[in-house]
């Protein structure tokens, strides 16, 4: 066992981990931050995406020890300071960008990373960026639309209710 400490959603945390403890496991089991989900074993579904030092990573494909000293952001830290949904979260609700909610934390975290590097992505850019996030419920239509809306683009011409 080894001691790790890191900043998670602005708070300094520490805990005992094994070498094999994944960052996702440390977040879920060590810190009870169960919003980060695990949907596959092969680093593809993206339900576990978090931010490490500002970059999107798959927390199920990174060891907790590798995040020692890092600044980690999870879905639990995304809302505005007053608890209201942030712009991306609000757009997901407004445009019905989620159904069962399981992939949603990873989608929101990936969307945030995308908009940070590309503030006005095209439809194709959003779709390409989401290559590592699988959703089984929505058919992606409303996720893509929500992310474009969150970037401030007018999505009223995109078919939907």
């Amino acid at each position: 066992m080894a001691q790790v400490s890191m900043t998670v959603n602005g708070k300094t945390v520490s805990g005992e981990v094994e070498g094999r403890t994944l960052l996702a496991e440390f977040l879920r089991e060590g810190l009870n931050l169960t919003g980060t989900h695990i949907g596959c074993d092969t680093s593809q579904c993206g339900a576990c995406v978090v931010h490490v030092n500002g970059e999107a990573v798959k927390s199920c494909t990174m060891f907790a020890m590798e995040a020692d000293g890092a600044d980690v952001g999870t879905i639990e830290g995304q809302a505005n300071a007053d608890g209201s949904l942030n712009v991306i979260q609000q757009a997901f609700q407004d445009h019905h960008g989620l159904q069962c909610g399981f992939c949603t934390p990873g989608m929101v975290m990936s969307a945030a990373a995308l908009l940070k590097e590309n503030p006005k992505p095209s439809e194709a850019e959003v779709r390409t960026y989401l290559e590592g996030n699988i959703c089984r419920c929505t058919g992606y239509h409303n996720i893509v639309k929500a992310i474009m809306a969150a970037s401030g683009q007018d999505v009223s011409a995109i078919a939907a209710e």
Binding site: T34, T36, T74
Partner: peptide
Amino acid sequence: AATTRREDIRFLTGEGQYTDDIN
């Protein structure tokens, strides 16, 4: 009415509780 979903709030903030989240 195309009412937005109330359950979204917990899913969007990581507060959903799925079976594996229960310990």
